[in-house]
């Protein structure tokens, strides 16, 4: 564990908690893409099945349980509890165009053709594009609540910190995982446009307006 990975995990945790609290406190999921949240729940489910097979550390297990729990709680709030506030008309990204190619790629490009490894690879590829429905929804509505932009900022920051963590681990431990690194680079690049807007227009505006 290095400081980049730890702050990355904490940034990820912050994003997940920010979103969950935002929906719970405002009792509304307006502007939130339920599809992205379903994809994240799928990412955590397919990646953390090793919870059942191997114990790495208390930290590892605790964080995985929290991530999975929050992901499903968020999906529940969006599609059940605060269903009336779900903006389905703007959450129209065709997720099958993400899940199917990612599923196929996981079978073609992986480290080991075992079920757990295929599922882990699937989750890595899926996570890199899981935010697209959310970014697409914001581009359609042309705006995002400030709290949602903070959620996206921490979510994007987490994988950027992981990229630094992988540079650190390669340099000091000779460890590197090409699949995770390539997917992580793609994932972070998808946020660049948003990062630019967050930094340049974030201050002093109640709504972040993304040019459609």
């Amino acid at each position: 564990m290095n400081i980049f990975r730890l702050t990355g995990d904490l940034s990820h945790l912050a994003a997940i908690i920010i979103l969950l609290l935002k929906i719970w406190k405002t009792r509304s999921c307006a502007g939130i893409s339920g599809k992205s949240q379903i994809l994240f729940a799928l990412v955590f489910t397919s990646r953390y099945l090793d919870l059942l097979t191997s114990f790495i550390s208390l930290y590892n297990t605790t964080m995985k349980v929290i991530y999975i729990g929050c992901a499903y709680a968020t999906v529940y709030l969006i599609y059940a509890k605060f269903k009336a506030t779900y903006d389905g008309n703007h959450d129209t990204f065709r997720v099958e165009f993400l899940v199917v190619p990612v599923g196929g790629l996981a079978f073609l490009v992986n480290h080991d053709f075992s079920p757990l490894e295929i599922l882990w690879t699937f989750s890595i590829y899926l996570e890199s594009v899981a935010i697209l429905p959310q970014l697409f929804m914001i581009s359609k509505t042309g705006e995002a609540e400030t709290i949602t932009t903070h959620y996206l900022f921490f979510l994007g920051l987490y994988r950027a910190l992981y990229l630094i963590n992988w540079i650190w681990r390669f340099y000091f431990e000779g460890f590197f995982d090409m699949i995770a690194i390539v997917a992580g680079v793609v994932q972070t690049i998808l946020y660049c446009d948003f990062f630019y807007l967050y930094v340049t227009k974030g201050e002093g505006r109640s709504q972040l307006s993304i040019p459609t």
């Binding site: 990975r5 991530y67 757990l116 995982d177």
Partner: peptide
């Protein structure tokens, strides 16, 4: 990773 499936990262 070279086969050592130590998925120690989240």
């Amino acid at each position: 990773r070279t086969g050592d499936c130590t998925k120690d990262e989240l």
